[in-house]
Design a protein around this nucleic acid. Structure first.
Lengths: 209, 209
DNA sequence: TAGATTGTTAATCGATTAACAATC
DNA sequence: TAGATTGTTAATCGATTAACAATC
């Protein structure tokens, strides 16, 4: 990789992508950093800086072509390719995530749902059948699994994560309330719902005073 | 409020809280910023700076008392008080969130589950009964609702959010894929799952190169 | 060509890290 | 008291914003 892009920039990319998608749906052909900045409540300067980390997508005197920029950011994010995802932990959250991601376009495809509870074995969740975690090695052999979403209790998360990585899955979407950052050779994205709720709680308290 | 605390600091507080909770469970009585820094993979300097935004919780030559610091951060985050939450949107995600939060301790209590789909009316989800959104005004009159979690499609999110705020609920935990930041007089915390997935996708691509 | 708007450099701002005096 | 470790100030680093020359 060339120069390292900061996570602050990367966190903003999906939001640009979303706004450009909406503009595209609205039939808007071109937009200037200034107009986009007004819609998104960020500075035009930041938009131009962010985009220029990846290349010059605009044109002086014209602005940015919406369709082109949308496409390019999609490429940067990798949402124009297919990503196969399995969900491990078939509780409420796991089932919800399995259903949710399926609804999203963006190339993410849920191809398996796993659990350790034998009672769930064979149960159908929409068009998926819950499989046992013991069958994962065999499954991985025959399917190209890129991402494992972990929607399981924090007690088992670490062990399962290591198992998953050993099987050759090098990306984890972690919903368990535990840090997995000491595992080698894996890209991790955390969704810590209770952290999010606590931040909300803090901001409520501040807002009152 | 005194001096404004940056969101960067606030985002780290729940993580401190979690680690201190684990230390507490393990029976650890005191910890220095240095030891904590090694566990958490952050600098000791940052820990001390972060904490000193809120007060001097440590003692020179001793470090921090785990139980005391845990309690204090809990107070700062507001998790030692009860927060009543309703969930609007009783789809898979809504039901999962309702169940998930119930499991968490930290004083968050789900007291209502709403939807607009008449077919869901009266359906039981664990110990909650799905109510119609039209009944929300009456519900709010009789219950002290602090937070509304929005787990509904982005098409209806904005309208529902404004309705909710007008009813006097000034905190929104937003799962809809839309920005609500132009609504007045409300504290918003976003959980944009598809953004999170795209960030993961980006980092996977980088990791490969 | 004149006007608009980018790409990019320079200036500012804020957050993180380092250092150390205060103090338990 | 001596050693340890905080609280806090100062130094550094990185991210954001401003400015403007390049150029469509």
């Amino acid at each position: 990789m060339d120069k390292m892009i900061s996570q602050a920039v990367i966190r903003r990319l999906p939001r640009y992508y979303r706004y450009l998608g909406e503009l595209l749906d609205d039939g808007v052909e071109r937009i200037s950093s200034n107009d986009l900045s007004k819609r998104m409540h960020v500075t035009a300067s930041q938009i131009r800086q962010d985009l220029n980390n990846f290349g010059g997508f605009g044109q002086q005197g014209y602005g940015y072509n919406v369709a082109y920029l949308h496409e390019e950011i999609g490429n940067i994010l990798g949402v124009n390719e297919t990503h196969n995802v399995i969900v491990i932990g078939a509780g409420n959250l796991g089932q919800a995530i399995a259903g949710y991601v399926k609804f999203e376009k963006h190339g993410f495809r849920i191809i398996g749902l796993f659990d350790i509870n034998p009672e769930l074995k064979g149960k159908r969740v929409r068009d998926l059948t819950i499989q046992m975690l013991d069958d994962l090695p065999e499954f991985v052999k025959h399917n190209d699994v890129e991402i494992a979403a972990l929607t399981l209790p924090k007690t088992s998360a670490k062990t399962v994560a290591m198992k998953v990585v050993n099987l050759g899955i090098h990306a984890i979407w972690n919903f368990a309330h535990v840090d997995l950052d000491d595992i080698e050779n894996v890209v991790i994205e955390n969704v810590h719902l209770s952290d999010s709720l606590m931040q909300l709680s803090y901001n409520i308290t501040q807002h009152k005073n």
